[in-house]
Design a protein around this nucleic acid. Structure first.
Lengths: 210, 210
DNA sequence: GCTGAGGTGCCTACAGGTCTGTATCCTTGA
DNA sequence: TCAAGGATACAGACCTGTAGGCACCTCAGC
């Protein structure tokens, strides 16, 4: 089931190359011919798997969503069990991304900027941001934020700003500043738990909507 | 000297159309032919004023810089004389932009996303962000922030996030959340002045670098 | 008032490149 | 034999940038 225990199929090579080129130059900046040339796959094969270029772009976005959202959750988990710490810790994913070679900002914002507002591609970028915000908002609720919606929006906006700025310059001071800001916002919005009651109150359903 | 006291020249019409189309679709998404068609100007005329498309894109960025930076400063001024209030008040420019018809995020981030990293266009976007950040940082210094560099970075990141998110959806709750976050960050970073000493301490040089 | 020159701008065509997407034929390996 | 994939050519659209010709306005000089 894992893609790593067999040698890469043509589809794998296409996706890997498209991921790299689309992120580097944007989906519009990287032509199908370039993907074909750099992946070493025939154009007919590419069009067999992805009949339209947009299909490939959507697959690219899904890949980025999986990767980025995954590293966001991993960074949060690495900060421990306290949701307040997790809200701050997820900003480490921003720092890691920023230090990565070839870092070029947020794939979703970059792609949204060059796609037609009503198109499937644009809708996918909006969906991604909504999913991330819902997750952060849920974390904020579990952290006991007075206004979880507000804190969720604030932290995702901060995250977006840190990511989006990366398309200009990958200044490592940005993620650090963003994390410090997140710390201040979380501290201000969430009542600090007494030392005695740090055990998680994990009985009730965690997902009721507001 | 003002462009409004004479009827628009061909150059004016080109710039107005390019501004609209470039912002709407991105510089790469709007072809010269479209600018020509929608401005009602001849292609030869356009190329007389802007020998390369990039020249037109740079003029577009200058226009946006002028407009956006201007409304940022106006929003700050409108918040009064206290630099702390100005740091918060500038976020009203974000709210106004977001409510504007056809709002489509940050022109600089959007343009940077689709331009070659070393190119003149890309450099211009980086310059713009640096100028804005320097201005915000200076404001933070005058507001008495313990670490003006840090607060400057935090607020511009918040601003970038609010702007960048606009390319996905123009949710008016975002600017409101960003402003509330700015308030919290400014309050945490700047010592609140005693009521008795609210007069500005405006003797010393305000521009020494850190 | 008339005329001609120069500036400004419009219209059309096109060269040469890139883009997406299709069609045709060939190779390789199970 | 059959499926997966490679090589190549090409259609049609769109892109930037150039060329040549023509219409109008303004203003100086007669």
């Amino acid at each position: 089931m894992s893609p790593s225990d067999r040698r890469p199929t043509a589809r794998d090579k296409i996706l890997e190359t498209a991921f790299r080129l689309f992120y580097e130059r944007g989906p519009r900046g990287a032509g199908i011919d370039t993907v074909v040339a750099e992946s070493g796959v025939a154009k007919t094969t590419l069009y067999k798997y992805f009949p339209r270029k947009d299909d490939l772009v959507l697959a690219y976005l899904d890949e980025v969503d999986h990767t980025w959202f995954g590293s966001l959750r991993a960074a949060a988990r690495a900060a421990g069990d306290d949701p307040r710490e997790q809200l701050v810790g997820m900003f480490d994913a921003l720092g890691s991304a920023c230090r990565r070679e070839g870092y070029h900002g947020c794939a979703f914002i970059n792609t949204a900027a060059e796609s037609e507002p009503g198109s499937a591609v644009h809708r996918r970028t909006v969906e991604h941001k909504a999913v991330v915000r819902a997750w952060v908002t849920d974390l904020a609720r579990r952290a006991g934020a007075a206004d979880a919606q507000l804190l969720g929006r604030q932290l995702t906006t901060l995250l977006d700003g840190g990511l989006a700025g990366g398309v200009l310059d990958a200044d490592p001071a940005i993620p650090a500043a963003a994390k410090a800001a997140a710390r201040a916002l979380v501290d201000a919005a969430c009542p600090s738990p007494r030392v005695g009651e740090m055990r998680p109150r994990a009985f009730g359903p965690s997902g009721e909507a507001s």
